[in-house]
Design a protein around this nucleic acid. Sequence first.
RNA 1: UGGGGCGUCGGCAAAUGGGUAAGCCACGGGACUUUGGAUCCCGCAUGUGCAGGUUCGAGCCCUGCCGCCCCAGCCA
Length: 562
Amino acid sequence: MSSLPLPPATDFIREAINEDLSSGRYTRVHTRFPPEPNGYLHIGHAKAICLNYGLAQAYGGKFNLRYDDTNPSKEGMEYVESIKEDVRWLGADWEDRELYASDYFVQLYAWAELLITKGLAYVCDLSADEVRAHRGTLTEPGQESPYRNRSVEENLDLFRRMRAGEFPDGSRTLRAKIDMAHPNLNLRDPVMYRILRASHHRTGDTWCIYATYDYAHGQSDSIEGITHSICTLEFEDHRPLYEWFIQAIGIYAPRQIEFARLNLTYTVMSKRKLLQLVQQGDVRGWDDPRMPTISGLRRRGFTPSAIRDFCARIGVAKRDSVVDVALLEHCLREELNRTAPRAMAVLRPVKLVLENLPEGHVETFEVQINPEEPAAGTRAVPFSRELFIERDDVREVPPPKYWRLFPGNEVRLRGAYLVRCTGVVKHPATGEIAEVRATIDPDSRGGNAPDGRKVKSTIHWVSAAHAVEAEVRLYEHLFTCPDPDQAPVGGSWHDNLNPASIEVLTGCKLEPSLAAAQLGDRYQFERLGYFCVDPDTAPGRLVFNRSVGLRDSWAKIERAQQ
RNA sequence: UGGGGCGUCGGCAAAUGGGUAAGCCACGGGACUUUGGAUCCCGCAUGUGCAGGUUCGAGCCCUGCCGCCCCAGCCA
């Protein structure tokens, strides 16, 4: 492999790997994605998955999925299943290497005894509070535990009895004997094992002591032969500890490289906050389309390729950063513009009556499925005397630059005819437009002006008699500000939740071809955005989600006018 | 304040024996258009946290400041 030409060093991690391969420090590349099964994966994890799997692919290496399941009190099967589904959906392939830190519990335990034997670990009887008090502070050294210098025999005996269940939870720990005065707090005799009577989702009640993440993680990588252990910045301080364990035990050493985790505007990314949103009912679940979770994005209509593209575009670096969510949305639009079939859907319908057409008139138009891809062909769309059009496409009195329907103005009905508005009928009580009247130009069939005259606007429509009804859910950012943590004094991130993040529209009118839409289908509703079928869809009940809106320059003009 | 990191356009992010600041998103303007979409053009850092220094030449090297992030779980 080292004889193959090296892939381009497009980021600092690939640069480091290329150096390692050139120098012979490693002769292959083996990465892993190491989630803790205590929550659902989010777009930040997607960055890590794409990075690690991408590395394995680029270097012809391997990629493992390994659960760091060392804390049974917070973990569970629901999470391991969802994680597996999400990683697979994103396209990362761990082949037969679905691994668990819990697979290594016996080995980890044996190495703990080895460290005790070497005088490098001891059983400590201090309580959690006492351990904290002994740790010192950022600027002051800690105090050594009074149990630090027990004999190897006593330590071994005590540790074995810890494992045997002779002591209550939290009463003792196994600690690494390093340096209580070390400026890096992680090296001030860190806990390796705690007593915890919790049933583990894989090992059941076999153990009542569990290794800490710090003790388990590095050795797990070592056991798996990971060459490049990619993790986020906050573990930079832990690297010396992992190296200490590996050196003390005397086993193979991977190289850890840290990168900055992903942050996105208008959302939160910590598992704790996401869990809170789910538990408090602020959203409808982990897969709520407003969530930055993989399952939320999937339900929202995102494609794995759009997410992969996003991850490639944001790059990898060590600088703390916040990526504009607009880039994520852009990646989806770019893909769906190419691939999504078009359809007409009227979300906020108002009736349009074509006065110069006879009652009961029906004809059919063949409309392009995707103008970006003529090969996709056409679909049949029924047309009749009474249509539904978008309420926003009609004004009694047009504002400046408005060139849609208003009395006297002519627009094109997409794929059908040119029509001129002859007036509006208003609801007597509310004054709201109840019906729009217009006449067609019979010579403009298909939407072509017979004399080549220009019409500024083309609007979409649905034949009233043929329309299928649907519920359509519109989503906005979950939070009202780019950085939800920027809370008003006395408030919290939670106060920045956007009360208008979801709007449910019922009675929407869709062109009849949409009646056949299946779960997983994505469409562009012309002039509106990209929509996908929601799993709440059932026989007789069609539900769509707006994945992302189209760019809307009229909305910008309108906003500027206010 | 001890330790570990990081400061390049509004947001990401390149520039790697020092050679005269890529690209993408966003934003603004124009062309074109049977989606106010898409597409295509144009604009968008005399400037790299600040101040000095070395050099013919500095985002890259040196010195000193300043700012931001992480660490005091028997969480990961």
